[in-house]
Design a protein around this nucleic acid. Structure first.
Length: 576
RNA sequence: GCGCCCUUAGCUCAGUUGGAUAGAGCAACGGUUUUCUAAACCGUGGGUCGGAGGUUCGAAUCCUUCAGGGCGCGCCA
């Protein structure tokens, strides 16, 4: 139940009616009409800008237009009072009967309140994480992982179908290095040969030792005598091991993918050749040369003829190579094949969540999807910016070369799943995020997670006092309450929940959910504390009773908090 | 050099897809606990929304331009 949508429709009907009577002119495009919450000082519930938008086309002042519209809005049975304000806003105060109906609706909808029933249901493919299968996930992967997971949760909440997919880059040079590293660790364990720690292309991390041990234990029959002989077998064993690690990291974060798509499989099934043929037929591929990047030292650059994709036709700054000099495919080539594969599975919309360091890649991959499908917004890429780790007030740097980076496992051990998810999601993904270890662990009030959870725990404690559980259904005989100013504030805030969901989806900005939950919690905490000064405002009276009205408010707030926290994927403890 | 992202209070950030006198938290200062959880609440101070132009009834939001910070720029993925 989105009250803003309801009133926008009502106003549109009124405008059409006034137009028929020749009282006002209407523009063709009504997109700039809106209905929203007015600032608190006006003591109104909803507000519309239509009079100002209509001013020009009608050659009348916004106030004059507003007065014409006002006469019609007055007829609506839910309207208590209308106020026309300065530039031309029409502010509407709704009758308490409307809000009573609203509350009744929320209580009966339970966790379904906020679902946009009118939205067309779509089939989404969401690709996220897709980190190289050469080791455990580290903090750098964490933000994108959570972002993707919560976007998926919200889409599903709105009854869309979502397939969560992980693209496994198990083809290419990094896999050869990784396999070699495992091989040397195996030799170290079995033959006591020292691991060549200074070789630059090897992975020094300790987790390689664990992988080596597991492979030795599970494959007693394999002899690790010659790298070239075992490399192909060993490679797949090692990848399998690191995927197990990655899956367990993700599971501990609360994330489970539906599908793992292997890059090697695509290559082996000749899907790259097929997609290149397809693009050749459409004339998007040619053999040519590209310019050196500006910061490349001149000596290192060898210009050569190579197979290129015409991404410049879609606005990219240069055409992109598909084949390396040894004739193997570039990462981009197999990724085009992967996206062709995605397209063949007929999703309405495909979303990729990328890290900031891959932002430069977006143009070419969306270009390829446009070339293949002919549709411009078939693939949407969302970038999550860097996470800056801060410990004891100082930035904490990780070094891949030393292998000393902080893994997701470390993170979860230190601050836990809930804090990690909530804090990582709490900021817009467009801005860098400070992740302050010490603050998050402090359980202080700087920590928005506790603030929201505390709200739920307080409500739960009231339910305990009256011998109920917070999840129990409540039976209200009749909804006929008069609301205080504080309660109206709560009602207004709750009425914005569907809008929050809608914006989170439309803009792929799920950080709006924790932000909203924080604001709602803040209003609740004020409401709670009113009982400190004024005993009549306490939830539970002296004779251990609770009024239906207060019960309804507690239930409504806790419903929204619970729903929201579920979307974020964190717990709502009943006691803290 | 080019592309993408960012710049809002001392610090970290929101800002309802262009609206009304720009909002939170932290930090600072002052107050609230015989009372449903003080992990909370209330109050005070703090702003040229990076700068300059433009678009219009109206700009933190859109466009142009400049400055500063971040990320990236063939055979890494």
């Amino acid at each position: 139940m989105n009250i803003f949508e309801i009133y926008l429709k009502k106003i549109n009907i009124i405008l059409i009616d006034l137009n028929k009577k020749g009282l006002i002119e209407l523009p063709k495009n009504k997109n700039s009409f809106n209905v929203e919450i007015p600032p608190v000082k006006f003591d109104s519930d909803i507000s519309t800008n239509v009079a100002m938008v209509l001013s020009k086309i009608n050659q009348k002042s916004p106030i004059e237009i507003a007065e014409i519209i006002e006469t019609k809005i007055k007829d609506d049975s839910s309207v208590e009072r209308i106020e026309i304000v300065k530039p031309g806003f029409i502010n509407i105060k709704l009758k308490s009967s409307f809000w009573n109906e609203f509350l009744k609706n929320i209580i009966s909808n339970k966790e379904k309140f906020g679902v946009n029933e009118n939205e067309v249901k779509k089939k989404y493919l969401l690709e996220f994480v897709s980190a190289n299968p050469t080791g455990p996930l580290h903090v750098g992967h964490c933000r994108g992982a959570i972002l993707g997971d919560v976007i998926s949760n919200i889409l599903k909440f709105n009854k869309h179908t979502v397939t969560k997919e992980y693209y496994v880059n198990d083809y290419g040079n990094q896999i050869i290095s990784f396999t070699k590293s495992v091989y040397f660790r195996i030799r170290e364990i079995l033959n006591n040969e020292k691991f060549p720690i200074n070789k630059p292309d090897l992975y020094p991390g300790d987790y390689i030792i664990e992988i080596a041990k597991n492979i030795i234990n599970e494959n007693k029959n394999i002899e690790f005598k010659n790298f070239d002989e075992v490399s192909s077998k060993l490679s797949s064993l090692a990848i399998k091991q690191s995927l197990l690690l990655i899956k367990s990291n993700l599971k501990n974060l609360g994330i489970v993918h539906d599908n793992f798509q292997s890059e090697t499989d695509l290559v082996n099934n000749n899907e790259v050749e097929k997609v290149i043929e397809k693009l050749k037929k459409k004339n998007f591929i040619y053999s040519g040369k590209i310019k050196a990047p500006m910061d490349e030292e001149k000596g290192n650059w060898v210009e050569r003829e190579q197979l290129l994709f015409k991404s410049t036709e879609f606005g990219d700054d240069k055409d992109r190579p598909l084949q390396k000099s040894d004739k193997s495919w570039t990462y981009f080539a197999s990724d085009v094949a992967y996206h062709n594969n995605k397209l063949s599975r007929n999703f309405d919309t495909m979303i990729n969540i990328l890290g900031a360091d891959h932002a430069g890649y977006i143009k070419r991959i969306t270009s390829s999807v446009e070339a293949l499908s002919g549709e411009k917004n078939k693939l949407i890429c969302k970038v999550s910016q860097l996470v800056k780790l801060i410990k004891d007030g100082k930035p904490f740097k990780m070094s891949k070369r030393k292998g000393d980076y902080i893994t997701i496992e470390d993170l979860l051990k230190e601050v836990g799943k809930d804090a990690t998810r909530f804090i990582m999601l709490n900021r817009s993904s467009d801005v860098e995020l400070d992740f302050d270890f010490t603050k998050i662990k402090e359980k202080s009030k700087d920590n928005p997670l506790y603030y929201v959870q505390y709200c739920y725990a307080r409500i739960s404690s009231v339910f305990n006092h009256i011998g109920k559980k917070i999840n129990d259904d409540i039976n209200i005989k009749s909804y006929n309450f008069n609301f205080s100013a504080e309660e109206t504030k709560i009602l207004q805030k709750i009425s914005q929940w569907p809008k929050c969901i809608e914006l989170s989806i439309n803009k792929l900005e799920p950080h709006r959910v924790p932000t909203y939950l924080y604001e709602l919690s803040s209003i609740f905490h004020s409401y709670w504390n009113m009982g400190k000064d004024d005993e009549t405002k306490r939830f539970i009276s002296k004779d251990k009773n609770i009024s239906d009205e207060k019960l309804v408010f507690l239930k409504a707030i806790s419903n929204v908090i619970k729903t929201g926290m579920n979307l974020v994927g964190v717990n709502t403890p009943e006691k803290m």
